Amino acid sequence: MPNITFQNNPVTLIGEEVKAGDQAPDFTVLSNDLEEKSLKDFAGKKLITTVPSLDTGVCDAEIRRFNEEANNLEDVTILTVSMDLPFAQKRWCGAAGVENVVTLSDHRDASLGQAYGVLIEELRLLARAVFVVNENNEVTYVEYVSEATNHPDYESALKAAKEA
């Protein structure tokens, strides 16, 4: 597993590390309308980001950036998953004007967190990571951000999504 810190303190990630070339693991999360969603509900190319909470500065900036960049990504669905409650995600998206990113909650089962190896044991939050999945559900790009309060490498993630 990658070595991750949260506010410069080492944390333990639960689950299996996902690597480029792997088949994307399935998951069960909740939409903002409390509907169960899984990998198969999102056909085509996907850029999946995991964040600790929408209500933090870095997460807010990250989602807004991907929301803006979505217009430059043809046939790519951007999914942002956190442990925030679906109600909070829906409220945040409305207040932020985010319409090009699908926010999903992993609060109920931590299914995606465990499947993608991003569940922080000590905090029950998700580490910051980016996964690009092609139309055949093969992972083509992975970034586990080493310090959860830092930004991901936007340029590399967006380039990988365009090439997926």
Rank of each mutant, 00 (worst) to 15 (best):
F42W: 00
R65L: 07
S53H: 04
R128L: 03
L54H: 07
E138D: 05
T80V: 15
Y116G: 02
H151G: 08
V29G: 11
K159L: 04
E99Q: 13
E62K: 00
V102F: 03
M83L: 08
A70C: 03
N71H: 05
E147F: 00
A96F: 04
I63P: 09
I48C: 07
K45R: 09
F66Q: 04
V51P: 05
L39D: 03
K90H: 15
E69T: 01
N32I: 06
K37G: 06
A157P: 04
F131M: 04
T140P: 08
G94Q: 15
V132K: 03
N8K: 12
N32D: 12
D153L: 00
E69Q: 11
V101H: 04
A129H: 07
T5G: 01
V81E: 01
E147A: 06
E35R: 15
D109M: 10
V142W: 02
T28S: 08
E143F: 00
I48K: 01
D55E: 09
L123I: 11
T28Q: 12
T140A: 08
F6V: 00
A127S: 15
A43I: 05
S156L: 04
L126P: 03
F131C: 13
T56V: 03
V139D: 01
V29H: 12
A110I: 04
D26A: 03
E69A: 14
E69L: 00
A43N: 11
D60P: 01
V139G: 02
V81H: 01
A127R: 03
E163H: 05
L73Q: 04
L104A: 07
E17Q: 14
T28V: 06
A164Q: 02
